[in-house]
Simulated assay, not measured.
Amino acid sequence: MIKVTLREKPISKGRKSLYLDFYPAIKNPETGASTRREFLGMYILEKPKTAAEKKHNIETLDSKKY
């Protein structure tokens, strides 16, 4: 059984990158190499100030459910 956790990693300009953390490591089907992380290319703001920024964070985090 593989456990998958959604994690956040701080990056530049006050943003956080979202990624999946796998335990135990899984094999990449293309390369055959073991990996623990898959970055999703999705970003949220660490400290949203405006309503639009807060909405962006909520919508981005809600989209992870699908």
Rank of each mutant, 00 (worst) to 15 (best):
P24E: 08
Y43S: 02
L45D: 11
L18C: 10
N28Q: 03
K64V: 09
E53D: 01
S63G: 10
N57V: 00
E30S: 09
N28H: 09
K13T: 05
I2N: 07
K64G: 00
I26E: 12
Y66C: 06
S34V: 02
G41N: 14
E53T: 04
E46N: 04
G41E: 11
K13S: 15
T31Y: 11
E30D: 13
D62H: 15
Y43V: 03
S12G: 10
L61R: 10
Y66E: 10
S17A: 14
T35I: 05
E30A: 14
E30M: 08
E59W: 03
L61Q: 10
K54C: 12
L45K: 12
P48C: 03
T31P: 07
S63I: 13
R37Y: 11
E30P: 05
I11V: 12
M42D: 04
R15I: 14
K9T: 03
S34E: 15
D62K: 15
N28W: 05
K27G: 06
M1H: 12
E59G: 01
T60I: 12
F22D: 01
P29F: 09
Y66M: 11
P24V: 14
K47R: 14
I44E: 04
P24N: 06
L45C: 10
I58P: 02
L18G: 06
V4A: 05
A52M: 10
K49W: 03
K27T: 13
I26P: 11
K9C: 03
M42L: 15
S12E: 14
T50C: 05
K3I: 09
A51T: 11
Y43T: 04
M1I: 08
K3E: 09
L45V: 15
Y23Q: 12
E53A: 02
E59D: 11
E8L: 15
G14V: 11
A25R: 04
D21L: 01
L20Y: 07
K64P: 00
L45S: 09
K3D: 04
P10T: 01
E53H: 08
L40R: 06
R7G: 00
S17R: 01
K9R: 11
K64H: 02
L20F: 12
T31H: 13
Y43Q: 01
S12M: 13
E59N: 06
A25E: 13
T31W: 04
K64C: 15
P29I: 07
N28R: 05
T60K: 07
K54I: 14
T5W: 03
I58W: 05
M1W: 12
H56D: 04
R7H: 03
P10M: 06
K9M: 08
R15P: 11
G41W: 07
T35E: 06
R15A: 13
T5I: 08
E38F: 12
T60G: 09
K16N: 10
G14W: 14
K55C: 02
R7P: 00
Y66P: 08
Y43K: 00
I44K: 02
S63T: 11
R36C: 02
P24T: 14
H56M: 13
K47Y: 07
L6V: 15
S12T: 13
R37P: 00
L18M: 03
S34T: 09
S63A: 15
R15G: 06
K55R: 10
Y19V: 07
G32T: 01
I26K: 12
A52G: 01
A25M: 03
T60P: 06
K54F: 15
M1E: 14
I44S: 02
K49D: 04
A51K: 08
